[in-house]
Design a protein around this nucleic acid. Structure first.
Length: 592
DNA sequence: CTCTCCCT
C-alpha cells in the first residue's frame, strides 16, 4: 500500500459532523474503505492512517497539528472549506498556511528537499476577491450552487414585536398553504420556549377539520432526545413548525422545510478589550446570514422565505458578520500562535486584524498567568499550557494541581466546566429542576457542586432515568467524561499524577482554581454587591448558580458575560486572603 | 431571577 507521507491533502471544516460526513461520503463514492485513502480526524475520533491521501479534519485539529509539525510537512495541499464563516480558527489558519507556504518556497529555493504547499480556499461568499487578495492574487474559480429557487418577502412596515409578528406569520402560512414544514429563526431559548407554548395554545383552537400544527423547539442546550423530535415525521395531518436558533443556519439541516421565517435578529458574542468583558447581545443579522437562512427553504424543492423586516431595513444590514477574531477574548488564540512559532502576534498577517487593544489585552492576561515573560516570549509553563486542549486559565489550573495535591478533583471539574452546562433547565420546569438538584449543592459553590453531580452520576452508572429526573444533560456529561479521559492522558505525559486527591480538604481545589482565575474574582462590598478585582465592575451571580443569593467575602467565577447585566457563571466562594498566594506577581503589582 | 454557536 502506498504511504502518503508528505503528500497528503487536508480538507478543513469548522464543524466535526461535516468533517466526518464528508469523509464517509467521499469514501463511499470512491468505493474505498473509510480510514484507508480517505479518512477523517476530529477530537476523540480519528480514522486516518499513513495510507490516507485525503484527510477531512476540523480546523481546530489542523491548528493542533501545527504545534507538532510547524511546516505541515505531511501535506502538499491544504483546503480550507467554509471560509466565509470566518471562525476564529479558520482566520488563524489563513495567516499560518500563508506563512508556511512562503517558508517552504524559500526552503526549496535553498535546495532543501521540501514540497511546495498548495492552498485552496472554498467560500460561499460573493466577495471572493478579498480571499484572493490575501493570498497574493490567487486565481478564483466560480462554482454554481445547487439550491432550488426561494421567493423572499419583506414586511411593509417595521415590526415592533417580533414574537407577535412570528405568530401571525406562522398561522397565515398554516391556513393558506396545504403542506410543507416551517423553519423559524429566533435569537435564543427564551424566545423559542415562549413562542412554542403560544403556538400550541393557539393551535388547539384551530377548527377540528383543519390540519394540525406542531411546534418543535431546537437549540444547542436541548437534550438529544428532544432535539431528535425535529427529525421525526409529523403525525398524520400535522404540519411541523421548527423554532430554532442559529444552530439551524449551518449545523443542523432539517429535511422537508418549505417555508423559512427570519426574524432578522441573532445573539452575537462581543468583547470589550478595555474592560476585558465579553457580551452576548441581540443584534440585527448580516445580509449573508439572511441569505443563509433563506437558503434553508430551498434544499429539496422551491421554497418561500418571509423576512419580518422591511426591504429598507434589509438594505441597511451589514454585508457580512464581523469575523469572530474581532469579537472575542484572544488569550487562547495568542497562546496557540506563540506556540506555533509566531512570536510577534501584533504583526501577524491577519485577513481582518483584531484591534491592538484586544491583542495587548490577551498578552497581558497570558503574562499575568505566567505563560509569557516580560519580553513576550513563551515561558516553560506557557509551552506546557499550550499543549493542553484547554483555555490557558484551565491549563494553568491543571498544571498547578500537582502542587496543591488535588489533580483528581481538578481534572474532573475542568472537564465539566469545558462543556456547555451539564444541566438543562426548561423555563416551565425551573423550580422542579432546581429542587431535584438541591441534594448535590455544595456550600462552597458550583465547582464542588459539579463534582458532586459527577460522583452521583457514577454511582447510578449513568442511568438515563436518573439524568432525566435530575435535568442532567446526558450528552454534555458524556462529552465531559471524554475530555476527562484525554486530560488524564495529557497529565501522565507531563508527570502530573492524575490520581492525587485532596480528600476532604476541598479548599485546596478552590485555591488551585484561583491560580488560573484570580482575575475572575470579586469581593463583597458593604452594600452587599460584588465588585470584580480586575475591572471593578459590579457583577451579579447568575440565578442558576449555587452561590445565587449568598453573601460571602469573595467569589471566583469561570465566566463573566454582559447580557442584561454583568452576570458571573460557575461561581465558588473564596477568601480574599487566598488571592496573593494564587498570583503573587499580579497582586503585588496592583498595590503599587 | 436567567447565555447564540463552535472547536482542541
Amino acid at each position: 500500500m502506498a504511504s502518503y507521507k508528505g503528500g497528503a491533502i487536508a480538507v478543513t471544516q469548522p464543524r466535526r459532523v461535516a468533517a466526518v460526513n464528508l469523509a464517509k461520503r467521499v469514501a463511499e463514492e470512491t468505493l474505498t474503505t473509510l480510514g484507508k485513502r480517505i479518512g477523517y480526524t476530529v477530537r476523540f475520533d480519528d480514522t486516518s492512517s499513513d495510507e490516507t491521501l485525503i484527510k477531512y479534519l476540523t480546523d481546530g485539529m489542523l491548528l493542533r497539528e501545527v504545534l507538532s509539525d510547524e511546516l505541515l510537512l505531511r501535506y502538499k495541499v491544504i483546503v480550507l472549506d467554509e471560509a466565509h464563516e470566518r471562525t476564529l480558527r479558520t482566520d488563524m489558519l489563513f495567516g499560518m498556511v500563508k506563512k508556511i507556504q512562503r517558508l517552504r518556497k524559500e526552503m526549496r529555493a535553498n535546495g532543501e528537499d521540501v514540497e511546495e504547499l498548495k492552498i485552496v480556499v472554498m467560500s460561499a461568499t460573493l466577495d471572493a476577491e478579498k480571499f484572493s487578495e490575501f493570498f497574493d492574487g490567487a486565481k478564483i474559480l466560480y462554482v454554481s450552487g445547487r439550491l432550488f429557487p426561494v421567493d423572499s418577502y419583506f414586511t411593509q412596515e417595521p415590526q415592533a414585536d417580533y414574537l407577535d409578528a412570528s405568530l401571525v406569520t406562522i398561522f397565515q402560512i398554516h391556513v393558506k398553504n396545504p403542506k410543507g414544514d416551517i423553519l423559524m429563526f429566533l435569537p435564543g431559548q427564551d424566545a423559542i420556549e415562549t413562542l412554542t407554548s403560544l403556538i400550541n395554545e393557539y393551535a388547539s383552537q384551530l377548527r377540528p377539520n383543519q390540519q394540525k400544527l406542531l411546534a418543535c423547539p431546537l437549540f444547542a442546550a436541548l437534550p438529544p432526545s428532544q432535539q431528535q423530535k425535529v427529525f421525526d415525521p409529523a403525525p398524520l395531518n400535522t404540519r411541523k413548525v421548527i423554532l430554532a436558533t442559529n444552530i439551524a443556519e449551518t449545523s443542523i439541516t432539517i429535511p422537508g422545510i418549505k417555508y423559512v421565517i427570519d426574524c432578522g435578529l441573532a445573539k452575537l458574542r462581543g468583547f470589550n478589550p478595555k474592560i476585558g468583558v465579553e457580551s452576548l447581545l441581540l443584534h440585527p443579522i448580516s445580509k449573508s446570514s439572511a441569505w443563509q437562512r433563506t437558503g434553508r427553504a430551498g434544499r429539496e424543492a422551491a421554497g418561500v422565505c418571509y423576512r419580518l423586516y422591511t426591504e429598507d431595513a434589509f438594505r441597511e444590514l451589514d454585508d457580512d458578520t464581523v469575523p469572530e477574531i474581532r469579537r472575542c477574548n484572544l488569550a487562547a488564540a495568542v497562546l496557540s500562535l506563540k506556540a506555533a512559532g509566531i512570536d510577534n502576534v501584533l504583526e501577524f498577517d491577519y485577513m481582518d486584524r483584531p484591534s491592538r487593544a484586544s491583542l495587548i489585552r490577551a498578552l497581558e492576561e497570558l503574562y499575568a498567568l505566567g505563560a509569557i515573560d516580560d519580553k513576550g516570549n513563551l515561558s516553560e509553563l506557557g509551552k506546557k499550557m499550550a499543549e493542553f486542549p484547554l483555555d490557558p486559565t484551565f491549563s494553568k489550573v491543571i498544571i498547578q494541581s500537582a502542587e496543591y495535591g488535588c489533580s483528581l478533583e481538578v481534572i474532573s471539574i475542568v472537564s465539566l466546566l469545558s462543556v456547555d452546562s451539564i444541566f438543562f433547565t426548561p423555563s416551565d420546569k425551573r423550580e422542579q429542576a432546581t429542587e431535584s438538584r438541591r441534594k448535590f449543592l455544595h456550600p462552597d459553590g458550583d465547582h464542588l457542586t459539579l463534582l458532586n453531580v459527577l460522583k452521583a452520576y457514577w454511582e447510578v452508572k449513568g442511568d438515563m432515568g436518573w439524568c432525566k429526573e435530575h435535568f442532567v444533560n446526558v450528552r454534555n456529561i458524556k462529552i465531559a467524561l471524554e475530555i476527562r479521559d484525554q486530560l488524564i492522558r495529557f497529565c501522565e505525559r507531563f508527570d502530573i499524577n492524575p490520581s492525587t486527591s485532596c480528600g476532604t480538604d476541598t479548599d485546596q481545589v478552590l485555591k488551585c482554581f484561583l491560580t488560573g482565575f484570580f482575575q475572575n474574582s470579586a469581593l463583597l462590598q458593604p452594600d452587599g454587591s460584588y465588585k470584580s478585582v480586575a475591572g471593578g465592575q459590579t457583577v451579579k451571580v447568575h440565578p442558576g448558580s449555587a452561590m445565587f443569593g449568598k453573601r460571602v467575602e469573595g467569589i471566583m467565577y469561570n465566566e463573566l458575560v454582559f447580557t442584561t447585566k454583568h452576570y458571573v457563571r460557575s461561581v465558588s466562594s473564596i477568601q480574599s486572603a487566598w488571592l496573593p498566594a494564587a498570583a503573587p506577581k499580579y497582586f503585588n503589582n496592583m498595590k503599587n
